[in-house]
Design a protein around this nucleic acid. Structure first.
Lengths: 198, 198
DNA sequence: CATCAATGTTACTGATGGGTAACATTGCTT
DNA sequence: AAGCAATGTTACCCATCAGTAACATTGATG
């Protein structure tokens, strides 16, 4: 049944999982619905994923990888300029918040839906968020800010808050100010004195 | 079966719902489990709540009411002093974030678990969060800040971000800085010139 | 053409979940 | 004691869901 021009079932399943898990919630979507929407069936799904939990973990891992490629984009667009990289990331994240249909961050949502410490998805989520925080601190430091950890955490909280609040106060809520607020931070946060290296 | 000294079944159910829904998630907890943990049974539960969805709405309404009593506390403790009220609220919220077992805001979590626009819980959540935002703006204005909406939204995002990030980066993460960051905001945000009224 | 791996199909299990019916019990009130 | 409302008990119905077994089909490769 392999029609040319079509992705293999595993990829189709992951793609559909992205849409359905994100839109309706992980617990609200059954594996059968995913298989059907992917043009395949439960049996094939279970040949590629050991369990629903593993499918969820794979789904989140794909999202995390994609999100982390943003950092590479930033480095490529503004090589050597940490502050511009920060602003670039900020722009992209704000833009996403504006387009994401009000469901916020899929990783954060999954963490809320799956509180069991042992769930395979939790490791993916925690590692992703922690890496993001560390990278943010590193960029803030590289950009010469005086208190990089504090500034990075503030931006982190603003971004997380903007995405989660989409669901309760909507796109017109406080999240709409994310870009302006965070850029204000970058503008006014204290920096090291620029010592002329020449 | 009404033993003296015990709360009536409705209250016991709501209390148990608070614990279980919050700890394990709404979709993860069945009504039967709640009834049993409340020392009663499904039939009695359904005599007090038309459906699980209504029980969820009632559970969240209770939480919202309790959270909103914080504003009254603040007004009583610091009457006429909007800035001190803000700092008081901030302290209480930070303290909660430190003690809440890492599951963050039950209202925000519920919004993530229940994306259906028609769910009776959504109205409770949205109204609660919007009221909170409005009250925050009002307090910031009353405290004489120059840009009350902007300042209020920034605090709102920090608080929401701190609570949601508990689940992915833990209590030692960026959320641990919530109090310091938000107080810094109150310290440095621009205010109207204090015109002597005397 | 023969083989073999990947996929499809159907049907099933066992568990759980929301919700209800019918009837028994309790305890307060008069 | 009688009555009544709230509660308890048991047994259901029906849907859904994760996961599996057994078997049929396809398609590319040799």
């Amino acid at each position: 049944m392999k029609r040319k021009g079509e992705l293999p079932p595993r990829e189709r399943i992951l793609q559909v999982a992205r849409e359905l898990f994100y839109r309706d919630g992980i617990r609200a979507v059954g594996v059968e619905a995913i298989a059907a929407a992917a043009g395949t069936n439960k049996m094939t799904l279970y040949r590629h994923f050991a369990s629903k939990d593993e499918l969820v973990a794979a789904y989140l891992k794909g999202l995390a990888a994609e999100a982390e490629s943003l950092w590479d984009d930033a480095r490529i667009k503004h090589p050597g300029d940490a502050e511009q990289q920060l602003r670039y990331l900020l722009r992209r994240v704000s833009q996403f918040a504006d387009e994401c249909s009000g469901r916020g961050c899929a990783l954060a949502n999954a963490a809320i839906e799956l509180p069991e410490r042992a769930h395979p998805a939790r490791k993916v989520i925690e590692e992703h968020k922690n890496r993001g925080r560390e990278r943010l601190v590193a960029l803030c430091r590289e950009a010469g800010y005086l208190h990089p950890e504090s500034l990075a955490d503030e931006m982190f909280l603003l971004v997380e808050g903007a995405r989660v609040s989409l669901q309760s106060v909507g796109r017109e809520g406080p999240g709409a100010r994310l870009f302006a607020l965070a850029e204000g931070l970058l503008d006014t946060a204290p920096r090291k004195k620029r010592l002329k290296t020449a």
